[in-house]
Amino acid sequence: MSEPAEQPESVKGWTRLTRRRDVLDDPYIHRYQRRHFFFFDILPAIGTVAAVALSWVWPPGPIEGSLLLGLWLVTGFGVTVGYHRLFTHRSFSAAPWVQALLAVSGSMAGQGSVISWVALHRRHHELSDQPGDPHSPNLHGQDPVGRLRGLLHAHLLWMRQHEYPNVVCYASDLLRDRSLLQVNGLYLWWVLLGLAIPALVGWWLHGHVAGLLLGFLWGGAVRMFVLGNIIWSINSFLHSFGPRLFATREHSRNSGWLALASFGESWHNNHHAFPTSASFGLDWYRLDPGYWLIWLLARLGLAWDVKVPSEEQIRLKRA
């Protein structure tokens, strides 16, 4: 099922073209970034506050809890297994329909279209915790004020406006995939679908308009807010606090208590040590739901070429 993973500190599995500008710094792109930040980062936070406030009138029940959990699982696996491990790092291969399903699921998280997300994350690996890293918390000074500014920047504020990695340079392999380009072009529609599904299900199960609002808030806004903050914590807190198994060139850290909620993403130091590994936990006792799904897909014949480092590679890297 698996094959050894290489152990580079930079991204492997793609070739960055260098004949063009690495990043684009354009007012039109910045306007789009600010709109995206408002609609998909700020509004979910406002929706979460509204959902909690309305709990005094319409307390969430099993329907709202199921919608929140169900859409959180679908979109969370879409981000970690699809956006991150499959499309960014090519840590496994999958059937075309599985790739499309993962790309759509990741898009519904509202964290950017698949090609943009991949380009940003590949640039992060290339320049992690160095000038040019889109979301490092370690470039704002080491005094308390600088550390706080860095955490706020890495967790959220960087998304307001940032240099946009040139997808021709950073994601040329994805640009050659026609089906993925189609999914990428419909990104906003997938986000709206991720909001419409819980709203309509809530309306149908409750049988009144208030159910539509509750479904939209808990399965849409709250789900986006919770998942977003979990993923953003990897950028901020796990480049600042926590243990390290491997002496990588950046400041990545691991977190066991966040492992289940982050679908295994919180084994972040492990990931930076072996970026092409489909397993982030690397050992069975480190909870890694993202890898569990890849393992299941492989057992079903829907995924193959699953890359995992050997025990010898891990031992040498730790040494």
Rank of each mutant, 00 (worst) to 15 (best):
R178N: 11
R85W: 09
V191A: 05
A261C: 06
G215A: 04
P198F: 08
W203A: 15
G146E: 05
L71T: 13
H206T: 05
L152E: 04
H271D: 10
F40V: 04
A119L: 03
P96Q: 01
D133Y: 08
H140R: 12
L213H: 05
S266D: 02
A259W: 00
S107L: 05
L175M: 13
W97T: 13
V145P: 00
L152N: 06
L205A: 12
S91V: 05
L43K: 01
Q313Y: 11
A298L: 01
P96Y: 02
L213G: 03
S10A: 12
F225G: 01
L245F: 11
Y28W: 12
R122F: 02
A154L: 11
D133N: 07
S2E: 14
W58Y: 14
G215N: 04
T80E: 14
P275C: 04
G219N: 07
V74I: 15
S240A: 14
A154G: 10
S113D: 13
V118N: 02
Y285I: 04
A303N: 03
L282H: 02
V201F: 01
S128R: 09
L71G: 01
T18F: 07
E163G: 10
F274R: 05
Y291W: 06
W117K: 02
R286A: 08
L54Y: 02
A196L: 15
R31P: 03
L217M: 07
S107T: 06
E265N: 08
G132K: 03
H135Y: 13
F37K: 02
V114H: 03
T248A: 09
G220D: 04
R223K: 11
I42L: 14
G215I: 01
L186R: 13
P44T: 02
N138I: 06
A100R: 15
A273Q: 01
I42P: 00
R34G: 04
L156C: 12
P134L: 08
G207V: 09
V57D: 10
L127T: 12
T80A: 10
L213P: 08
E311T: 12
D177Q: 15
I46E: 07
E126N: 09
F237K: 01
T80H: 07
L205P: 10
V104R: 10
L120F: 13
H121T: 01
G264F: 02
V49A: 15
P198N: 06
I46V: 15
L188M: 10
A171P: 01
Y83Q: 07
D173G: 05
L101I: 10
V145W: 11
R318F: 03
G290S: 14
G207A: 10
G141Y: 01
G219E: 07
F77H: 12
F216Y: 14
G220C: 05
P59D: 09
E311Y: 06
L156S: 12
E163M: 08
S266E: 03
L69F: 14
R35V: 14
L86D: 06
F246W: 09
L300D: 01
L17F: 11
C169V: 09
S136N: 07
R223H: 07
S252A: 15
F38M: 11
F280C: 09
W218Q: 04
G141I: 00
S266N: 00
